[in-house]
């Protein structure tokens, strides 16, 4: 008669769901963590992902999914508190430390993470990785920006267009 389905994390045992990466690795996580994904949230609310079923994620490989879930698990408690208005400064500092460390990664990993966050619609993570991209660009000269993002040296034609652009926005390049 009990209705454990409707509990929002107040049950004794947290409800678990299974996510399946594109390379068929199964990840079992708390529903509350997986629900940070807007994409998964409805499926999970409808009772999906439990038992032996699992929710297939054909666009996310296991390495990336593992990283994404690391984020979700860390952030789930704060999210459950509705953005944690009463979180202590220590908790917030810890999350911030975690976030900074979390995006201290190779660009190739970062891009996979960006796509996963986008596809899974995990708001906090989308924001975090976008900020990381912004940080990679900030405070750099035009050539440094190109190199950081891995753009090849410009062809003469591209160079001419770049020059025209820089001339047009001279104030931004002083």
């Amino acid at each position: 008669m009990a209705a454990p389905e409707s509990g929002d994390g107040n049950n004794g045992a947290a409800r678990m769901v299974t996510l399946i990466s594109s390379d068929n690795t199964r990840f079992e996580v708390e529903a509350a963590a997986a629900s940070l994904s807007q994409t998964l949230q409805l499926t999970i609310l409808d009772g999906g992902g439990g038992g032996g079923d699992g929710i297939p994620l054909p666009n996310v490989d296991s390495a990336t999914l593992s990283k994404v879930l690391e984020y979700c698990i860390k952030h789930a408690p704060a999210a459950a508190n509705g953005g944690a208005p009463n979180a202590t400064a220590v908790d917030r500092a810890e999350l911030e430390r975690f976030d900074n460390e979390f995006v201290n990664i190779d660009q190739s990993v970062l891009y996979s993470l960006i796509m996963a966050a986008h596809n899974l619609e995990i708001e906090g993570l989308q924001s975090l990785v976008a900020k990381k991209v912004a940080d990679m660009i900030k405070g750099k000269s035009p050539m440094e920006i190109r190199r950081t993002l891995g753009f090849p040296d410009p062809t003469p034609e591209e160079q001419a267009e770049m020059n025209a652009h820089m001339l047009e926005y001279g104030w931004a390049y002083e």
């Binding site: 660009q107 891009y111 796509m115 976008a130 991209v133 190199r147 993002l149 891995g150 753009f151 090849p152």
Partner: peptide, 26 residues
């Protein structure tokens, strides 16, 4: 600078505009 070697540029350019706009907004 790995001149002319397709590197991370391919990756960042593969991102949809939505994501790039989000980065630019920071």
């Amino acid at each position: 600078a790995p001149a002319r070697v397709p590197g991370p540029a391919c990756r960042i350019n593969a991102l949809p505009n939505d994501i790039l706009h989000r980065a630019l907004s920071h």
